[in-house]
Write a protein that binds this DNA or RNA. Structure first.
Lengths: 243, 243
DNA sequence: ATTATGAATTAGGATTGCCTAACATAGCAG
DNA sequence: CTGCTATGTTAGGCAATCCTAATTCATAAT
């Protein structure tokens, strides 16, 4: 019972009594993202995502397993338990609500909401997050199009297509873009490639060449690595953009 | 140069390049509060305020001195340096802006804004805090009446009188109440003893007895320890409340 | 079946913050 | 001026996280 107070210091999220630290929440988020909810994740991939040495991940992962947040077999990767998954989704909800709130209520620039939310998600109480959500009308997606888990821990897990993988001639609607790189986000905004935008894949140069898109009235070419970060859904013929 | 990354983890406030941890910001705030800006502070008092063992304070205080945030002589208390004072005021500004924002923009209950701000102040960027401030019209005081330091680190340091120290017969305006105890705040709100309220000290029972106040049309008695938490300014005769 | 290669783990450290127990100092009371 | 009591400090530890270096394991290629 000694040192009982210790953990209070970086204690997070003032909520349903878990009390996870910031780093722990980050690990869970990373594992969730890498494993798409369920599915085994390699410790090296966690390390890479969090910019942490692989050795450090081994240690942390053991502790998380002890806490029942994930199951773990030496040398065989990691899988979130139901508790771990719920904790990850709670953090994800916080993150995305905060992003949405910053964007809508405070006109926070969309390329920077991610970084800000990355810190606030560990400090905001459930009450605050809920107030933010209701202040902006309980959105279902964040500014980058990522689905926001419900209070009950349900998420839309629909999978969309990376723009890079679809063929020329197809009309698509942008559903979601990757949110981490501010510079990329600024560029995408400049091209008007944002969630909801409709565009036509005009052509794809071979050998991973540039992809030409018609966006509104203009044509733009983007590289395949950028196109891989843009998730889209095909438009039905009925709603195909006029050409 | 090893372990250079370490500090990034709990790194705060994304700002003018300092990068103080949450605990460090808390120490500086405490020392500022106890020393009223300048003035020597006893390590024991810091310990008491932060609910930390005195021994722990000795250690931390040495580190803060090494970082040039305070000056410190063994056995003779602690004093903020100019840098320390500026850091404390920055945190104080964050705290109070956040409180004000939560209260005004999100209707956050006034007895809980303190606790929430206590965590957010270590995570919010300067940009966010500034956006919050301008969203609510750059307030000068927080919901409890505490003055908000300017971006440049200036604060109104006017001293007011604890209600407990003034004599019967005097008309006063409530300027500020202590913000830490939610229960007390709820009670004060119930009595309508909130910043801006005008009231008349009707009588003071001797031997630290209750103080009777006329608030609007009603009479209320409060104990001296509560009255010590309420700071007021005397009304000029011209604006004395009608009786 | 053996071995190279890459993935993952252990070993050994560092840092921040906090704790308890034991010791030291200052400052006043006599 | 001596000694008590307050207050403060050191000593020794622990827990969370991270790091580098060295080692172990899994597996695919010989």
């Amino acid at each position: 019972m000694k040192n009982a107070k210790r953990a209070d210091i970086h204690l997070m999220s003032t909520s349903t009594g878990d009390a996870l630290t910031g780093p722990v929440e980050d690990y869970l988020k990373a594992i969730y993202a890498l494993g798409r909810g369920t599915g085994a994740v390699a410790t090296n991939d966690i390390a890479q995502r969090l910019l942490i040495a692989p050795a450090s991940v081994s240690g942390m992962v053991r502790r998380l397993a002890d806490q029942g947040l994930l199951s773990y077999e030496r040398y065989h990767g990691v899988k979130l338990t139901e508790r771990g998954r719920r904790a990850a989704l709670r953090t994800l909800r916080r993150h995305r609500i905060i992003e949405s709130y910053l964007s809508k209520a405070l006109s926070y620039p969309w390329d920077r909401v991610h970084a800000e939310a990355e810190r606030l998600e560990h400090a905001a109480s459930d009450e605050l997050v809920d107030r933010m959500a209701s202040a902006i009308g309980e959105p279902n997606v964040d500014p980058h199009g990522a689905p926001i888990p419900s209070r009950e821990g349900l998420v839309d897990e629909t999978e969309y297509f990376p723009l890079a993988e679809l063929g020329a001639g197809l009309g698509v609607r942008v559903v979601r873009v990757s949110d981490e790189d501010p510079e990329m986000l600024r560029y995408l905004a400049e091209l008007e490639i944002t969630p909801g935008a409709e565009l036509l894949i005009v052509s794809k140069a071979p050998f991973s060449g540039p992809i030409t898109l018609r966006i509104g009235a203009t044509l733009q070419s983007i590289g395949p690595s950028l196109a891989a970060q843009v998730l889209v859904e095909p438009l039905t013929d009925l709603e195909a953009p006029a050409h």
